[in-house]
Write a protein that binds this DNA or RNA. Structure first.
Length: 744
RNA sequence: GCGAGAGUGGCGAAACUGGCAGACGCACCAGACUUAGGAUCUGGCGCCGCAAGGCUUAGGGGUUCGAGUCCCCUCUCUCGCACCA
């Protein structure tokens, strides 16, 4: 940009526009001069332009990747023109089940496959002309990277935020292996078609739920796409409600086996079993005609009557075998009566206790009070098992005795309580407060906040990931690997496939698996699970500026200078998990005193998706755009500019094969304008006016990612400047070249 | 089912806080130049109509001097979550 060609002396032959030659020339120059490698320690006015690093698939760079990267690159180039020192790093999210499955399919070790894929990606990204600082390239599979991923695990462990518990996984009894949810299709294993079962394995979790409130509250202050913030809010899913205590009747019969929740300290003896339920509709308690426990609920054993025991046992066993996916998606209600009754604390009436798999152990207390009159699921269940349905909420049009029809009545606005004793005629919200207060006064309820967010399971019974840095010693128990012994290297084993042993392939590698205890030097075994890919990507932005440092995960001074990230652009497919986990890890590191900010991304924008001729691109359709082909035919500049022109960046667009010609024509005309511009001189008033309008528009559009309209504005200016057979002046063309430069 | 977003020419799309709907581009039509080319340049191009004129932003209603834009209802599509009590 700095050596804009001077006007040709009259008579010079015009030079033809040859994108391949020009792009090669400038890319070589950038590399030789380090144009895109800023001085991180001293650069003034830092601007960290981050894009989501890709998973290096074997197919090479997808046009969707390039769309995302180019949008970020343009934003970065614009900031550079505005006087910022711009840092735009690049890396590879190369661990994970995706790579591993592909490696298994083609029969090549991922350790061999991944570097090849990375080379292809790097070449393609370079060819697209991105202003990447390659000195800071990283890959999550590099021991110098995952050493620090393991370090992060240890920090969470130290804070008490990493813990182990048994959790269900999908298990294929034929392949004898753990399956990810996406490998279960319609309840069956995607490879062999065998019906998948649930199995319980000890797995590592991060206590992200401890941070639920903060993760939610902080969203208000972030400059992020609204759609992304909304998705996060819904995912965290805060709901306020009450836990209500129902006392199980006739417990003396069962008291012998009771290990139950009663026995508040100071009381003489356990005299009753209690079931705690969570509800957001305490106002409907007079309509609670039965209780439902999840099949996994700890009280199931103790409350079941002898007559019902066999039936309950069978139901629980069936539920335990069912795979996770269909358990959560089947809508047909099923359940079984326990033979036990509890007292509804509002009515004093006995109500039956059932077990049903539509109640999930992971949410709330794993037990509900069923209000079939006013909850659709309870209604369905009550009709299936012929349980009483009572109206306790009435709208304007209802009388106290209007029967509930074919569906539950779930409205609340303008409704009043009925059949609810002295709470009758209160509005729903008044009733909720009055009833909860009354129950609380009798120690029968407490106010609680629940989140649907679950703790983050980071264990993977797989090979291709960073080993979890934990050792099990017979004397010392669970021992974290000392930080100075990191990384725990992933051994290069030949047979990395999951097999019928039921544990990670690493368990088969005896010399790795057997180790000595770091504390007592006695014999010990290594944790054989590796960690989730999302942990790799939850902190990579912290690593980039310091990627050349081996002694620290991230340098203090550089981190202070460059973070939090000024601009992050990525796809909304990561709106929930990746961004939430990154925020969580950042908060934990903040609380542990490693960094002085708790939100990693000041500004986040989600880009849209590219379709082709109106249809989604997919390998099976055979309509995937290969960037290399287009760059060869049209040049990277035309391709980039076209990608940015085909629709609003945050919404995506339709890639039409013929469309690129319009953008190419624009660049051809720009090239010719430079060749034609031989005289300096005053701008024609009409051209000058248009120029200033264009500068204003482009300058406003680029920062808000309005790339398509910025390009349209520059095209308009071109039309004005060259209208008729007019040959523009140097001073008319020069500013246009500058405006185009972030794009091409 | 719940949540988010979107419906504008033959196509991709513009229209900032309500103010000339269709910028810019593709495709198409006509013309100029011509070493006949998938080059360049000029003009045309929402729909109906020879025209005058009328109609037009998924459909219906409303607010307003004025609505693609705001409000209500209906329909369609895309994406995300899916028994979260």
């Amino acid at each position: 940009m700095t050596d804009f060609a001077p006007p040709h002396p009259a008579g010079d032959a015009p030079v033809a526009y040859d994108p391949a030659a020009i792009e090669r020339k400038w890319q070589a120059r950038w590399q030789a001069e380090g144009t895109n490698s800023p001085d991180l320690a001293n650069g003034a006015n830092p601007f960290y332009a981050l894009m989501m690093f890709p998973y290096p698939s074997a197919e090479g760079l997808h046009v969707g990747n390039l769309f995302a990267f180019t949008g970020n690159d343009i934003h970065g180039r614009f900031q550079r023109l505005q006087g910022h020192t711009v840092f735009q790093p690049f890396g590879f999210d190369a661990f994970g089940i995706h790579s591993e499955n592909y490696a298994i399919k083609v029969g090549i070790h991922p350790g061999e496959l991944i570097p090849r894929n990375i080379d292809t990606f790097r070449r393609q990204v370079q060819r697209a002309g991105l202003m990447v600082d390659w000195r800071h390239e990283l890959s999550t599979t590099d021991p110098s990277y995952y050493k620090w991923t393991q370090w992060i695990f240890l920090q969470l462990y130290k804070q008490g935020l990493a813990y182990k518990k048994a959790a269900a996984v999908n298990w294929c009894p034929f392949d004898k292996t753990v399956l990810a949810n996406e490998q279960v299709i319609g309840g069956a294993c995607e490879r062999c078609g065998t019906m998948v079962e649930q199995r319980f394995l000890e797995q590592w979790f991060f206590r992200i739920t401890d941070y639920a409130g903060r993760l939610l509250a902080n969203l208000d202050g972030l400059d992020w796409s609204d759609s992304t913030k909304t998705a996060q809010r819904n995912w965290i899913g805060r709901s306020e409600g009450a836990e209500i205590i129902f006392v199980v009747q006739d417990v003396m019969e069962f008291a012998g086996s009771a290990t139950a929740s009663a026995g508040r300290s100071g009381e003489v003896a356990v005299t009753a079993l209690e079931v705690r339920v969570f509800t957001t509709r305490a106002d409907t308690i007079f309509g609670a005609t039965y209780l439902v426990l999840s099949p996994e609920h700890p009280l199931v054993e103790s409350i079941t009557s002898d007559e019902q025991r066999e039936e309950v046992k069978q139901y629980v066993a069936k539920a335990a075998k069912q795979d996770l996916v269909s358990r959560k998606t089947t809508k047909e209600k099923s359940g079984v009566f326990t033979g036990a009754y509890a007292t509804n604390p509002a009515t004093g009436e006995p109500i039956p206790i059932w077990i049903a798999d539509y109640v999930l152990m992971e949410y709330g207390t794993g037990a509900i009070m069923a209000v079939p009159g006013h909850d659709e699921r309870d209604h369905e269940f009550a009709r299936a098992y012929d349980l009483p349905i009572v109206r306790v909420i009435a709208g304007e049009e209802h009388s106290t005795d209007t029967p509930i029809g074919d569906a539950a009545f779930t409205e609340t606005d303008g409704c009043r309580l009925v059949n609810s004793g002295r709470f009758n005629e209160l509005s729903v919200s008044e009733g909720m407060i009055a009833i909860t207060t009354e129950l609380a006064a009798h120690h029968a309820a407490i106010l609680v906040v629940n989140y649907r967010l679950h703790d983050w399971c980071i264990s993977r019974q797989r090979y291709w990931g960073p080993p979890i840095p934990i050792v099990y010693c017979d004397n010392c128990g669970v021992v974290p690997v000392p930080e100075d012994q990191l990384p725990v290297l992933l051994p290069a084993i030949e047979d990395f496939r999951p097999d019928d042993s039921g544990v990670s392939p690493l368990a088969r590698h005896a010399e790795w698996y057997h180790t000595t205890c770091p504390t007592c030097d006695g014999p010990a075994r290594r944790e054989t699970d590796v960690s989730d890919t999302f942990l790799d990507s939850a902190w990579y932005f912290l690593r980039y500026p310091s990627s050349d440092r081996d002694d620290v995960p991230f340098d203090d001074a550089l981190t202070k200078k460059w973070l939090p990230v000024h601009s992050y652009i990525g796809g909304n497919e990561h709106a929930v998990l990746h961004l939430l986990y990154s925020r969580f890890v950042t908060m934990v590191l903040h609380d542990a005193g490693f960094i002085d900010f708790e939100e990693p991304f000041t500004r986040f924008r989600a880009h849209g998706m590219i379709v082709r001729e109106g249809a989604k691109m997919s390998k099976s359709r055979g309509n995937v755009v290969n960037p290399d082909d287009y760059i060869t035919e049209w040049g990277a500049d035309a391709f980039r500019t076209y990608l940015m022109f085909l629709g609003p960046y945050e919404e995506g667009g339709d890639f039409q094969d013929r469309g690129i010609s319009g953008v190419k024509r624009f660049l051809d005309r720009l090239w010719r304008s430079v060749q034609d511009a031989r005289t300096e001189g005053d701008l024609e008033p009409e051209v000058q006016r248009k120029l200033h309008q264009t500068i204003k528009k482009v300058g406003e559009d680029i920062p808000r990612l309005g790339y398509n309209t910025a390009i349209a504005a520059m095209m308009e200016y071109m039309n004005t400047m060259r209208s008729g057979e007019r040959k523009p002046h140097v001073d008319e063309v020069r500013p246009l070249v500058q405006m185009v430069s972030p794009f091409a």
